[in-house]
């Protein structure tokens, strides 16, 4: 398949992105550049200068809602991509409504308890929707520890599964970017297998 056909194929799909921080913003940009037609992005936060160390935003977007800033950035890259922004804190109640109709969902939260909530909710209430989770992005180096693992057809995990972010082990652009790209890469792989 040539690139034009690949983009046409990917254009048919809708992917949910839960969180528009380091993983979510970078993954969304990757998917948009690949041609995934519709991206549903949910996050309650606004862009802060400190986010720019790893998140796909710009200085002049400080104070903007992340989902709207991301929509703006994707539009500048490819106006053909539809971004559906939800400035909301996701919970077990609104999640199945917001991500209804998505072929797959990218888990891109910061907090581990939110990751847990999302996995429980999607696995129990959204049968048939594949979930790609990020776990373990902290610090720098150790690229060889970052991997992508299939749990089963409905659940995949990307990251080192070991390191937790802290003051001494902050999230940084290279490692966050690797995991975000791995999540996007896996999403493209799975979407390319769908007729």
């Amino acid at each position: 398949m040539k690139i034009a056909e690949i983009e046409k194929h990917l254009g048919k799909f809708r992917v949910g992105i839960a969180g528009a921080g380091g993983l979510g913003s970078n993954c969304a940009i990757c998917l948009a550049r690949s041609g995934v037609g519709t991206l549903v992005v949910a996050d309650y936060d606004v862009v802060e200068i400190s986010n720019l160390s790893r998140q796909y935003y710009f200085r002049d977007q400080a104070g903007m809602k992340k989902v709207l800033a991301l929509q703006q950035n994707i539009k500048r890259i490819n106006p053909e991509i539809t971004v559906i922004p939800y400035q909301v804190e996701l919970d077990a109640g609104n999640l199945p409504v917001i991500f209804k109709g998505c072929n797959l969902i990218i888990e891109a939260f910061d907090r581990a308890d939110m990751k847990d909530m999302l996995i429980e909710t999607v696995q129990r209430e959204m049968p048939g929707v594949t979930l790609i989770v990020g776990s373990g992005i902290a610090g720098w180096g150790k690229s060889e520890d970052i991997k992508c693992r299939k749990i089963d057809d409905s659940l995949y995990i990307c990251g080192d599964e070991t390191l937790e972010t802290s003051e001494e082990l902050p999230p940084m652009a290279p490692r966050v970017g690797i995991v975000a790209s791995m999540q996007a890469n896996l999403a493209v792989e799975l979407l390319m297998k769908i007729d």
């Binding site: 380091g22 939260f109 910061d110 907090r111 990751k115 847990d116 776990s135 902290a138």
Partner: peptide, 25 residues
């Protein structure tokens, strides 16, 4: 679910998958 860890039995031949959720993202 976490509240079922005590009451759920693992049987011979079962396929068990486990992973940790690390904060950061």
């Amino acid at each position: 679910s976490r509240d079922q860890y005590d009451s759920t039995y693992i049987n011979d031949g079962d396929n068990v998958q486990m992973f940790y959720l690390m904060s950061g993202g």
